[in-house]
């Protein structure tokens, strides 16, 4: 699905050539500073490589409309942002930004369930815990039904039990819907348990 060739970002990060297969779960591991988050940003075109080429579905990223590409290859970054409103209003606000019709309440609850959020839709987001906010944020992103879902440290604010449940459910949903899942995690246990394919970014790639 993705292929990287001689990719270099601002001469700080040099990536080994790699391919990321479609329809499976790929985990990207490595120490902090090895360029995991940057790799995800490169893949959805939020930033561009200084050198080298990235192809998506056999076409270079430059050939895609950047906005449509980001909608198709969705990145859920580590920094969660929710509006100071209820969960339902957050769904609506983000949908309005994307210019798509609002989701019905049953639909919202379905995605919240997948992400193990068992809170009423009227809960105000600014009083939720860090872990709850992270899961609500992932649920909203998941509901966009992208072709590729990239999660950056999705379990950083979660305890082991919640982390396992979240990854398990999200992976199952992605498998059912032929969504390619890419997870960045410094937690090797998660990678070994859920990944069909592991990419290890060594600190040595850095210059």
């Amino acid at each position: 699905m993705f292929a990287l060739k001689h990719v270099n970002y601002q001469n700080i990060l040099r990536y080994p050539d790699m391919t990321i297969p479609a329809g499976v779960t790929t985990c990207i591991c490595g120490e902090s500073g090895s360029g995991k988050s940057t790799l995800l940003k490169l893949l959805n075109g939020v930033i561009s490589p200084t050198e080298g080429e990235i192809t998506y579905s056999n076409q270079t990223l430059e050939a895609y409309d950047p906005i449509l590409l980001r909608r198709e290859v969705l990145l859920v970054s580590q920094s969660v942002y929710l509006f100071d409103k209820s969960i339902k209003d957050n769904f609506n606000e983000y949908y309005a930004y994307r210019n798509i019709d609002a989701l019905c309440e049953a639909g919202m609850n379905r995605y919240l369930d997948i992400c193990s959020v068992s809170l009423p839709l009227t809960s105000m987001c600014h009083v939720l815990s860090g872990g709850e906010r992270q899961r609500v944020f992932i649920a909203i992103n998941l509901s966009y039904q992208p072709k590729v879902l990239m999660l950056d440290e999705p379990t950083s604010a979660l305890d082991d039990k919640n982390a396992t449940a979240l990854i398990e459910h999200v992976k199952a949903y992605c498998n059912e819907n032929q969504i390619t899942l890419i997870i960045v995690s410094h937690d090797k246990a998660i990678a070994e348990k859920y990944a069909d394919n592991i990419i290890e970014l060594a600190g040595g790639v850095k210059e």
């Binding site: 959805n44 939020v46 906005i67 449509l68 590409l69 980001r70 909608r71 198709e72 969705l74 990145l75 859920v76 970054s77 920094s79 969660v80 942002y81 983000y94 930004y97 994307r98 944020f137 992103n141 966009y144």
Partner: peptide
């Protein structure tokens, strides 16, 4: 960042 990542213009 959240909105950019979601493909909002």
């Amino acid at each position: 960042d959240a909105l950019v990542n979601m493909g909002v213009t």
